[in-house]
């Protein structure tokens, strides 16, 4: 039993991250997989959610906005609202752009958000970040493992909720319009659909889900720092979606599991294998590895492990290749 404990505690830790990432990737899947919106600013909207929830729920910070000490639930809802509002503002300005132009713009916006987080000390704590973000269940359970396990259950419940909600959405007439816009926006518009309005709604809902993911992250780690939201995060999340299968919500969840598994395993392996002096350089190999995995995926299974299924409610099956 004692030997099992570290394994169990590591597994819990790992799965919490997987479920948090899965929530975010589901948000991205609505935007990219179902609507074809090339959002490369995911980290920015995750950051907004994380900071919002931290500010709303944490105890008083001296000389800073926030520390409202509100319940965690309020923080999570607040995270969705602010990330959604941010997406609305960004979307109105940027969503008229297509493809790579939208990608460049959202990338820039995410960088801006990250830099603001790093420098707006009065709001985000600047480089120190926000400490003492409440971690639910720590007082209920004496042990870290107990608290983490309870938090994992919460994350899985929220993931299930998000999954069901988004599945309903994409299987509805609303989702049908999103897919039509992804396939051929001109044709969708000529069939009476206001493409811009639908793109905007998809963008806002997706970003609100990303904000929720950010809040889940903040309440697990217990503090929020600007360096958590660098472009590498966006890259990892995109890798999860591509590997799992864009346009399939189950693929998005599976991708989060697989890519985060490869990421942590390779990280541990590289730490073991590289000599002490070369650790920093060794860590860079992780990114290379994910990049290679991504390329291999795009060559051999361009639709991901489980890609989109054409047909209503996934009834007509068509495998992943």
């Amino acid at each position: 039993m004692d030997a099992l404990l570290p394994v169990l505690s590591y597994a819990t830790f790992f799965l919490v991250f997987v479920s948090v990432f899965a929530v975010i990737v589901l948000g991205l899947n609505l935007q990219w997989g179902f609507t074809g919106l090339f959002n490369v600013g995911v980290a920015g909207f995750v950051a907004i959610g994380a900071y919002t929830s931290a500010i709303l729920t944490a105890p008083d910070y001296p000389n800073q906005v926030g520390g409202f000490g509100l319940p965690v639930v309020v923080g999570m809802v607040g995270a969705m609202v602010t990330s959604g509002l941010a997406a609305l503002v960004v979307g109105v300005a940027a969503l008229r752009l297509r493809h790579d132009y939208l990608a460049i713009t959202t990338f820039g916006i995410a960088m801006t958000i990250q830099l603001v987080a790093l420098n707006a000390q009065w709001l985000t704590g600047g480089a120190f970040g926000l400490q003492f973000v409440p971690r639910p269940f720590t007082e209920t359970f004496g042990t870290t493992l107990g608290a983490n396990a309870a938090y994992l259950a919460l994350c899985l419940a929220i993931l299930a909720l998000v999954y069901v909600a988004l599945e309903r959405l994409v299987r509805s007439p609303f989702g049908r319009v999103l897919r039509a816009i992804r396939e051929d926006e001109t044709a969708a518009q000529s069939l009476g659909k206001r493409a811009f309005v639908f793109r905007l709604q998809s963008f806002v809902i997706g970003c609100a889900v990303m904000g929720l993911g950010g809040a889940l992250y903040a309440h697990f780690v217990g503090f929020v720092a600007a360096e958590d939201f660098l472009p590498i995060l966006t890259f990892q999340l995109w890798a999860m979606l591509i590997v799992g299968g864009a346009g399939n919500n189950r693929g998005a969840v599976l991708g989060a599991f697989v890519v985060w598994g490869v990421w942590t395993l390779s990280g541990n392996l590289l730490r073991e294998l590289t000599p002490q002096a070369e650790q920093a350089r060794g860590a860079a190999l992780q990114v290379v590895l994910i990049g290679i995995a991504l390329c291999a995926m795009l060559v051999w299974r361009p639709r991901g492990l489980i890609g989109e299924r054409v047909g209503e409610g996934g009834k007509a099956k068509r495998g992943g290749s």
């Binding site: 319009v177 897919r179 044709a187 346009g247």
Partner: peptide, 19 residues
Amino acid sequence: FQIPRPFPEMTVLENVMLA
């Protein structure tokens, strides 16, 4: 359209139900 523009990754039924 002169060159038809169906939504290729949607079924025929979905294409029509969209309109």
